[in-house]
Design a protein around this nucleic acid. Structure first.
Length: 448
RNA sequence: GGCCACGUGGCGGAAUGGUUACGCGGAGGAUUGCAAAUCCUUUUAUCCCAGUUCGAUUCUGGGCGUGGCCUCCA
C-alpha cells in the first residue's frame, strides 16, 4: 500500500503524510459552536474528517486519537440565549444533543474525545497568564489581547502579511488594542453573561484560545493533523498557531492543515440574511442520512459543493440501486484503495464503487464483496436492506393496506381488460411516490 | 485593493504529456397489454490566445469568466 497524501494548507501543496509517531496518530478538528442547529456546511466537515479518521484507523491499526471540540461559550450563544429567552445551558445542551443526533444519522464515528470549552476555562486562564508573562499578550481594562507583532510568523498559514491587514474598514477598531489585528484572549462579561473569575476580570475566553489549550492537553504541543472549514484558516487557525507556538516556543503546531471547501445552496452562499440555511436535521428528514452523506462526499473535499435537489435526488437514485446488491456481512476493509490515499479522493473512490457494482451485478461475487466493503468503508450501508426499505415507507403519506387495495383493484381491471382503469390506478400511486412493478405474474411496489 | 481557488460532455464530477473515467439524464433495442424494474447498445467535453513539446485538456505566460478569504462563520 502506498502512502497517504494530503493537501497541506500550510504549504499549499499535496504532501506525503508522515506521522510524528505511528503508534499515536493525532487528529484535531474544529467542532461546532452550539448556538443553532448544525447545517449542511457543518455536516461536510463532519463527514470529511470522519473519512480521514477511518482512513487513518486502517493505516495505523487504530492508533489514532481524534479530538473534536465543542464550543459552548461564545457571543453567538449569548445572543441566542437573550433572543430566545432561554438559559445558556438550555441552549448549549439542546444544540449539543441535536448535533450528536446529526452525527449519528450521518454515521460518523465517535471521536476519541469531545472536549468542551467550558470544561477548560482554567487551562485558558493559565495559558493567557503565561502569554502575558512571556510578553506576547497584554492586559487593558480587564481585557487581554494577543499582540500579533510579537509573533514573527503571523499570517504564514493564511498567506497574509500584517501590512495588508492593517486597520481597514473590516477590522474591529478598539481603543484598547495596540494594533487593530490584535485579538482577544480574555474579555470581561456583563452582569448576566456567563463569566469566570480571572486575574483580569470576571469574564470569558476568546474563541481561538480553546483549540490551543485543548489540542495541547489531549494531543501535545506538536501534533499531526488539524482540520476545519476553509473559513477557519483566517483568523481562527492563524491565531491558534500564534498562541501555541509563542507560548510553547515551538516552530510547529500542527504538521498538516486540512481544510474543506464550502457548501453553497443553489450556487449561493449559505447565510442567515439570505435565509437559505439548511440544517442537517432537515436534510436528513427529507432524504436520509446516507443520501446526505453520499452527497457530501460526491465532490472532493477541497472543492466547493453545491447543494441542490438534483444532487440529492441523484444520490438517492444511486443508493437505491446500490442497495440491490447489499450484503448483510461484516467483513472490514483491510486495505485502503489508492484513490482514497491520494488526498481523500472520494469522488474517484465512488466511481470505483460504481465499477465494482457493475461487475457484481454481472455475477462477479468477489466484486460484490468488494463493493459492499467499499460502501461500508465510506460509511454507507449502515442499515440493512430491510431497514432501508422500511425507512422509505415512513416517508410516504399512505398506508400499506391502501396500496395493496389499489394493487388488487388494478389487477381486477387488468383481468377485465380495462387497461385504462389499470393505468389510472398506477398513475395515482406514482403520484404518491409509489412505483409499481409487474414481475413474473406478481405485482410488487416500491417507494421511490 | 491584497491573497487564493476554480473554469472538463445536458448536469454532477475524476484523472491524465499521447489510450472509453464514473454516475445521473438522453437515444435505440430486448422484455411488457402499456409501463416500471432489469439487461444490452449508444451519443456528446476539456473557456480563449500564445509558448514549450513529435504531441497539451494536462506544463509555462497572458486574457476572459466564476467563486472564496481579508469581520462572526464549517
Amino acid at each position: 500500500m502506498s502512502n497517504l497524501r494530503l493537501t497541506n494548507s500550510f504549504s499549499r501543496k499535496k504532501e506525503v503524510f508522515k506521522p510524528l509517531n505511528p503508534k499515536k496518530i493525532s487528529l484535531y478538528a474544529c467542532g461546532p459552536t452550539v448556538y443553532d442547529s448544525p447545517h449542511v456546511g457543518n455536516a461536510r466537515s463532519l463527514v470529511v474528517f470522519d473519512v480521514l479518521f477511518r482512513v487513518l484507523k486502517v493505516l495505523y491499526d487504530s492508533n489514532v486519537i481524534y479530538v473534536r471540540n465543542i464550543t459552548d461559550v461564545d457571543d453567538k450563544i449569548i445572543e441566542a440565549s437573550l433572543k430566545n429567552k432561554k438559559s445558556i445551558d438550555e441552549i448549549t445542551n439542546k444544540i449539543t444533543k441535536i448535533f450528536h443526533e446529526n452525527c449519528e444519522s450521518l454515521n460518523c464515528l465517535k471521536p476519541s474525545m469531545e472536549p468542551k470549552a467550558t470544561e477548560h476555562i482554567q487551562g485558558m486562564i493559565d495559558m493567557t497568564q503565561s502569554l502575558i508573562k512571556k510578553g506576547y499578550a497584554y492586559e487593558k481594562d480587564g481585557h487581554v489581547y494577543f499582540e500579533v507583532n510579537s509573533y514573527k510568523e503571523y499570517g504564514k498559514l493564511s498567506n497574509k502579511n500584517l501590512d495588508d491587514l492593517k486597520a481597514g474598514s473590516r477590522v474591529e477598531i478598539s481603543e484598547l488594542k495596540k494594533n487593530p489585528m490584535d485579538f482577544v484572549l480574555w474579555k470581561p462579561s456583563k452582569e448576566k453573561e456567563p463569566g469566570w473569575e480571572s486575574p483580569w476580570s470576571k469574564g470569558r475566553p476568546g474563541w481561538h484560545l480553546e483549540c490551543s489549550v485543548m489540542s495541547e492537553k489531549y494531543l501535545g504541543k506538536n501534533f499531526d493533523i488539524h482540520g476545519g472549514g476553509l473559513d477557519l484558516v483566517f483568523p481562527h487557525h492563524e491565531n491558534e498557531i500564534a498562541q501555541s507556538c509563542s507560548n510553547n516556543n515551538t516552530k510547529k503546531f500542527a504538521n498538516y492543515w486540512v481544510h474543506n471547501g464550502f457548501v453553497t445552496i443553489n450556487k449561493e452562499k449559505m447565510s442567515k440574511s439570505l435565509g437559505n440555511i439548511i440544517s442537517i436535521s432537515e436534510a436528513v428528514k427529507k432524504y436520509s442520512g446516507q443520501v446526505v452523506r453520499l452527497a457530501l462526499l460526491s465532490a472532493h473535499y477541497s472543492q466547493p459543493l453545491d447543494w441542490n435537489d438534483k444532487l440529492l435526488e441523484n444520490q438517492k437514485t444511486i443508493l437505491n440501486k446500490w442497495y440491490d446488491l447489499f450484503l448483510d456481512e461484516n467483513k472490514d476493509l483491510s486495505e485502503i484503495d489508492e484513490t482514497l490515499l491520494d488526498d481523500l479522493n472520494t469522488p474517484g473512490f465512488i466511481a470505483k464503487i460504481h465499477e465494482f457494482y457493475n461487475a457484481a451485478s454481472k455475477g462477479d461475487k468477489e466484486k460484490k464483496i468488494k463493493f459492499n466493503q467499499a460502501c461500508k468503508f465510506l460509511g454507507l450501508f449502515n442499515v440493512t436492506k430491510k431497514d432501508w426499505e422500511s425507512s422509505k415507507k415512513t416517508k410516504i403519506g399512505v398506508s400499506e393496506s391502501y396500496i395493496n387495495n389499489k394493487i388488487e383493484e388494478r389487477l381486477k381491471a387488468k383481468i377485465n381488460g380495462d387497461f385504462a382503469l389499470a393505468d389510472k390506478i398506477r398513475d395515482e400511486l406514482i403520484s404518491k411516490g409509489i412505483s409499481i412493478e409487474d414481475q413474473k405474474g406478481k405485482t410488487i411496489w416500491k417507494v421511490k
